[in-house]
Amino acid sequence: MVVGFLAGGLGSIAGVGGGIIITPVLVLFFHVPLPLAVAASLVSVIATSTAASSVHVERHVTDVRLAMTLELTTTIGAAVAAIVSAHINHRVIAVIFICFLLYSAYSMVRKQLHDSSRPRADQSSWEPGEPYKIRNYPAGLGISLIAGSVSGLLGIGGGPIKVPAMYLIMGAPLRVATATSNFMIGVTAATSALVYYGRGDLRLDIAGPLVVGVFSGSLIGARLAPRIRTREVAFLLIALMVYLSVQMGYKLATGGFQ
């Protein structure tokens, strides 16, 4: 519950999902087997996505048509990855996880640099109701397939893959891309969570307290966010991600994840 609370709180302040933190913490510090950690993380990812996207949808920043279209491939990726994950060596999954932790840390560093080099007004120039044209559907669908697979394999949301795809390649405003990615995460994670549940990998004694922690953490985090400096929280998360990837690497090198 404490893990969920911290992950939810930090995540909602820095604007990322907690999934990337939850799986490695459960595996490294609570010695939870990888598939069970992924299943528990998926459920908490659904909790944060659902709670956050209800707010975004109400503010009309979510593109539900774009979301539904891209969900065609995120759900296929999520389903296939969740089904295949039972037959993949855990060491391979751990290596992919380390790569994704480092990529997420890198994309957060880039975002921080980007934020400080540009005035705030420039990023929030789009207002709900303003028209924009979505292009490059084939590329967007392809990247969503990858995002869905990574989500189903690692128990994460996959925002760092989808947001740049929608913003840079498909031409959605950044706010729309962020809200739409969040909206899609619930459906994507639910698809793979159902596969893990059916397989018996969803442990109630792990997922129950975790969900309560994540949910209350993200509620408090959202309240605190305007009052604390999100920059420090972002750097704390970056440091945590690098630390977790090193720990995962150490566990891998010393014969873990068999």
Partner: peptide, 8 residues
């Protein structure tokens, strides 16, 4: 938890 998964 099943209600949560069923929501999306």
């Amino acid at each position: 938890l099943l209600l949560l998964i069923a929501t999306p």
